[in-house]
């Protein structure tokens, strides 16, 4: 694209020299409007999520969150678990936090399914290892993005991610989309590229919060980690939270509330 534009400018320059009205063309090129963000766009320096699994009343509530995300982003439903593509999914607490494994851990948490997704790390190893910058951290708000048109499918990022958050399209994903539910607003993918949660950047751009937080009835809180007045900071100040594998220095932006249920002691 860049080359084409450069060629065009060269042509415009040449025609200007020959007095063929090139100046007018060049002027119109300069006037090409640049991207104007939606005035409703949410702005933050480092977006984060705080997940409180205790606030999910039933398994159906958890499933709904996954369903909403996967439908909105045209994530295929591939039955073979080895070739699954998933952006947000559940694993037992002892698998999400393997270093916390303890046979005496309260049953309430031990086998509780925990939602897990891309942690949008402040120091993301996937970005570091990517040989084409197809995955990159957005400077403005810290979202770890995916350019699926640039990805060569080398899967270095999948090896690099310590959270199992990334999926390769081992096969063409399109036959595994429900034709009735395809979201025309979001691109579908082709085989051979890696994908993952991109924190609903497309919703943030029009002033909406990520779909999982929206569908969670308050169990997932979204906000700017660097804004002391944000809702996530309020939760972090008031409750005990943990992050996945913080010892690796990745600085995840997804927090989990532990013991957040006011009457957890009585209930469990």
């Amino acid at each position: 694209m860049k080359i084409e534009r450069r060629e065009f400018l060269k042509l415009a320059g040449l025609s200007a020299i020959f007095g063929l009205g090139g100046t007018a063309i060049a002027a119109s090129v300069q006037q090409t409007p640049s991207y104007i963000p939606d005035p409703k766009e949410l702005t933050g320096k480092r977006w984060a999520l705080v997940i409180n699994m205790d606030k999910f009343k039933t398994d159906a509530d958890v499933k709904r969150v996954i369903e909403v995300c996967h439908t909105k982003h045209n994530v295929p439903n591939i039955p073979n678990p080895k070739q699954e593509v998933k952006w947000i999914f559940t694993e037992m607490m002892e698998n999400v936090f393997p270093e916390q494994q303890d046979k005496y851990l309260t049953e309430h948490y031990k086998h509780m399914p925990f939602l897990t997704l891309c942690n949008h790390c402040a120091n993301p190893p996937c970005v570091r290892v990517c040989p084409t910058q197809a995955t990159f951290k957005r400077k403005s708000d810290g979202i770890v993005m995916m350019d699926m048109h640039r990805c060569i499918g080398c899967r270095f990022c999948m090896a690099g991610c310590p959270y199992g958050a990334r999926s390769l399209n081992w096969i063409d994903p399109r036959p595994y989309l429900d034709p009735k539910k395809i979201n025309p607003e979001f691109p579908t993918r082709m085989k051979g590229v890696v994908e993952k949660c991109t924190l609903c950047y497309e919703l943030i751009a029009v002033g909406k919060i990520p779909a999982c937080a929206e569908a969670s009835n308050g169990a997932i809180v979204f906000g700017d980690l660097e804004d002391p007045k944000s809702e996530v900071r309020k939760v972090l100040a008031e409750t005990y939270t943990i992050r996945r594998k913080p010892e690796l220095g990745t600085r995840p932006s997804v927090y989990y509330v532990i013991g957040g249920m006011k009457d957890a002691g009585k209930g469990a």
């Binding site: 970005v127 570091r128 084409t132 060569i152 390769l168």
Partner: peptide, 24 residues
């Protein structure tokens, strides 16, 4: 390396978008 790529015809992206942070 090439047969391992998911999108082999994009292999040249490693040259077009050099990424000195990547060991590859």
């Amino acid at each position: 390396i090439v047969v391992d790529l998911g999108q082999p015809y994009r292999a040249m992206n490693v040259i077009f978008h050099p990424s000195p942070s990547s060991i590859l």
